[in-house]
Simulated scan of single mutants.
Amino acid sequence: MTGALIRPATRADLDALVALEAGFAEEDRFDRRTWRRLLGGRTGALVHESGGQIDASAVLLFRQGSDIARLYSIAVAAGARGTGLGARLLSACEDAARQHSARALRLEVRVTNKSAHRLYETAGYRVIAALESYYPDGEAAHRMEKVLIAPSDGAT
């Protein structure tokens, strides 16, 4: 992907982020107001830009006093799916979480989203909880986690 990069999202990306998610089910996308809040808050929003176009995004949440970061969403444009972009964006999210001193990264994923499950399992995530009726439409989710920084055993 010539001219492709993953970078922090800015408020200037607002229109492109809303457009990226326009084709998603309403319960699976952020509206403009939510994106404004996310871009100004304690998040680590990232975008993948190729040829001047944003074709993927991710949102990380960091809670003060917590060493666990949360991957809130990854969105990849339909035309960019199946190219490995999700894996590259996930890796960038893990790097960003480490930079925020996160010990682990957690996420929730629809039980029926088999491609996302494959992505996360291949990257080393494991299911730590089943969440019944997690989504607004009543679908269950799996909470998954990957340890990013191994706990110290006290040895030097």
Rank of each mutant, 00 (worst) to 15 (best):
M1S: 13
T2F: 13
T2Y: 09
A4P: 04
A4K: 12
L5E: 15
P8C: 08
P8N: 14
R11L: 11
R11F: 12
D13K: 10
D15T: 12
V18C: 03
G23K: 11
G23N: 07
F24Q: 14
A25V: 07
R29W: 04
F30P: 00
R32H: 06
T34S: 06
T34D: 07
W35R: 05
G41S: 15
G41Q: 07
G41F: 02
R42T: 10
A45I: 09
A45G: 03
H48G: 06
H48C: 14
E49W: 04
G52L: 00
I54L: 01
D55L: 06
D55H: 01
A56Y: 00
S57V: 08
A58I: 05
L60S: 01
L60R: 00
L60D: 00
L60C: 02
F62E: 00
Q64V: 15
G65M: 08
D67Y: 08
I68R: 15
R70E: 15
Y72S: 03
S73L: 06
I74T: 04
I74A: 04
A75G: 07
A75Y: 04
V76N: 07
A77V: 11
A78W: 07
G79K: 11
T83A: 15
L85P: 01
L85C: 10
G86V: 00
R88N: 08
R88K: 15
L89P: 03
L90I: 02
A96S: 04
A96R: 02
A97M: 04
A102K: 04
A102I: 04
R103S: 14
R106S: 13
L107P: 00
V111F: 11
V111W: 09
V111L: 15
T112M: 14
T112C: 14
T112A: 14
N113M: 07
N113C: 12
K114Y: 13
S115V: 13
H117T: 11
R118V: 15
L119V: 04
Y120F: 15
G124W: 03
Y125V: 02
V127G: 05
V127R: 11
I128T: 06
S133T: 10
Y134T: 04
Y135G: 07
Y135C: 01
Y135Q: 04
Y135E: 08
D137E: 10
D137L: 07
A141W: 02
M144V: 05
L148N: 01
I149C: 08
I149W: 02
A150L: 11
S152W: 03
G154E: 03
A155N: 07
A155H: 09
